[in-house]
Design a protein around this nucleic acid. Structure first.
Lengths: 134, 134
DNA sequence: ACCCCATAGGTGCGATTTTCACCTAAATGG
DNA sequence: CCATTTAGGTGAAAATCGCACCTATGGGGT
């Protein structure tokens, strides 16, 4: 929405698509999905993160896989290959204690953000509907 | 916070600094500041946007000026030079009707985002403190 | 006369992030 | 034997960010 034209929702829409993926808060949602699932592979997480996504824009797999890779590099998740079973090999991810703590940090950040956003909205509305604004 | 180390708050902090400026929601804050001020120049807005910023990270002037330039390109603000008066010339900005409407669109987006974030926070907390989680 | 500081408005550019398209590979169905 | 589904990516152009740097005006101090 903020910048230019939205390919997903067409023109004249105000959506969150133009916010990048960091803005779409992929990381906390992935951490949460992993906490719910216990152990899961990326392809599997795709649908779960979509349900819990904070914005209306699609979380695409490129950013999902890269987020998982980065979470592993930071020690927030671990992974192991599962080669047996049918179909291609799956990389199974699991949350580490550090990952759970990181999610709690995200929760605090998002709580604060939710608050300031709510206040901002209230401020704008109050100013827009102020009595002197005939 | 999400990625790596924060230069502003040091290590071990969970802040919003690592979110980019789009993430810091500069645009709606600039629009609101301009609505409050009526007419203002960039340097002047710098302090006002800081007060109303949605995150704890500094909104730096590079992004402020670029946001203003872009808002003008999209017809959300107009500008004129004020050369008289002492000191260097100032570029005075003013909100257009389109800009006011754009702020209202932002308000809807932010309201939705504030809601989903609040719910996400509640969900994580509920799951973390669930009875079966001995 | 000279220099420094505050005000004002930027730009340059390397580094990071995002996006969309594209690729490999294993099993399954026809 | 060929297409589809599941799975896990990568390449690379485009967009964005952040910090450093630049110009210019006027006022105050020495």
């Amino acid at each position: 929405m903020p910048r230019g034209y939205c390919r997903r929702h067409g023109p004249g829409q105000h959506c969150t698509c133009a916010m990048g993926h960091l803005y779409r808060f992929v990381e906390p949602v992935v951490l949460y999905a992993l906490m719910l699932k216990g152990e899961a592979h990326g392809y599997d997480l795709a649908s779960v993160v979509q349900e819990h996504a904070l914005t209306d824009a699609e979380i695409e797999k490129a950013s999902l896989y890269r987020t998982l890779k980065q979470l592993e590099a930071n020690g927030h998740v671990t992974s192991r290959w599962e080669t047996d079973g049918s179909g291609p090999a799956r990389r199974l991810y699991r949350l580490t204690p550090s990952g759970e703590q990181h999610l709690q940090e995200w929760v605090e950040v998002l709580e604060h953000l939710s608050h300031t956003m709510g206040q901002f909205v209230a401020n704008v509305r109050a100013y827009t509907n102020r009595p002197t604004d005939k």
